Simulated assay, not measured.
Amino acid sequence: MDIERVELKLLKVPLKSRFETSFGEVTEKQFLLVSVHGGGETGYGESVAMDYPMYNEETTGTVWYMLEEFLIPKLFTSQVKQPEEVSEAFAFVRRNNMAKAAIEGAVWDLYAKQQGITLASALGGKKQTIDVGVSIGIEPTVEKVVEYVERFVEEGYKRIKVKIKPGFDVNVIEAIRRRFGSDLPLMADANSAYTMQQIDILKQLDDYGLMMIEQPLAHDDIVDHIKLQKELRTPICLDESIHSVEDARKAIELGSCKMINIKIGRVGGLTESRKIHDLCEKHGIPVWCGGMLEMGVGRAHNIAITTLDNFTVPGDTSASDRYWEEDIVEPAVKLAAPGTLAVPEGAGIGYRINELAVQKYLVRSAEFTKR
């Protein structure tokens, strides 16, 4: 592949409304938009790291540093012929997966554009549409959560995920079930908020027919989740604990979970995401694509990876207007039908960059060229 230049742009964008999880509240988000140029084409990637190390150890600041000091120089000196080789070139750096994923995704997009094919096709995906769900944060009242559920059910989303934490859990799920019945596809996401000492609370959730409970225990645990899964009828889904295909292999072999949430940034890129997908498919473990409050470029990458066969659970890739008044891609990501997104047909990610929006939210930029 011909890679001549890389650009980094730091954007700060306000959310339409606050979004709260068990580890904190977000009202605006910083993004790193990465563009890789070569052969007359430009590929785009987006870092999903947050301002603070709440979800994992990375931040927008650490991602910028890793890209500038290590990953971009390594990309320029590597003889990359296929996008899969980028993750191999970056293997000398431990973790920093969100930094790796941001630039690896841009290379994947560049490759697809140079080949004149969609990013989904480049990854081996075959779906023309994908089913999507929506994630609802922790709200001041249970009633407010129920209001949001009502809205998103009316919009046709095919799975509802609600964030929970100790003291805001069973009561929320019970209220949703009382209002919408047992047929609503519903799951709870704990974001590591519980311990084994609170197993009685988690066991109460068994009574509500949830699709899954996501990451109830510690962010780095696969051992206590084994014990917990044995006590629950509800499938456990692992998120924060899975950073690689090796993590997924160990969790599956140990019986730590029955589902896995694949987030491209968390696992280090599209190549590793595909490896985890393939492993889970081999072992009969359903996967789905989690969200990290992405803007349009990140959403486009999520759409592309979800076209692989074993993404059988609707993911978190809702329409752009779920979180943003204005997106950085054109057209904005919109539902093609209730609960369904169409896979773009254009080369690469299939969306154009809204340069006016990028300039509007731009905080900092830098350019790097191959010497």
Rank of each mutant, 00 (worst) to 15 (best):
G105L: 02
V132P: 10
G125S: 08
K113L: 04
V107R: 05
T129N: 11
N97Q: 10
L110C: 09
S135C: 14
D109N: 08
A106H: 07
A112Q: 00
A122I: 04
A112W: 01
G133R: 13
S121I: 01
A101G: 03
L119P: 00
V107H: 01
L123I: 02
A102K: 03
G105V: 03
I138G: 04
V132Y: 07
A99F: 06
D109F: 07
A101F: 00
I136K: 13
K100W: 01
I103E: 01
G116Q: 12
I138P: 00
G116F: 15
G125A: 03
V132N: 11
G124W: 05
I138L: 10
G105R: 00
V134D: 13
Q114N: 08
Q128M: 03
A112K: 01
E139C: 09
W108V: 07
G105E: 02
I138K: 06
Y111K: 08
G116V: 13
Q115E: 15
W108P: 07
T129F: 09
K127N: 06
A99M: 05
S121Q: 14
I138C: 10
K100I: 05
I117H: 12
V107I: 15
M98F: 04
G137I: 12
V107L: 04
A99Y: 03
T141E: 12
P140I: 10
A112D: 04
I117C: 14
V107M: 06
L119M: 10
A102R: 03
S135Y: 08
Q114H: 01
L123V: 06
E139P: 02
P140M: 06
D131N: 07
D131Y: 04
M98C: 02
G133N: 14
Y111R: 09
K126T: 15
E139D: 11
W108D: 06
G137Y: 10
G105Y: 03
G116C: 11
L110Q: 11
K126V: 13
Y111L: 04
L123C: 00
A106V: 08
A99H: 06
I130P: 01
T141S: 15
V132R: 07
D109V: 07
A122V: 09
G124C: 14
E104I: 06
G105W: 02
E104Q: 04
D109A: 05
W108I: 09
G105M: 11
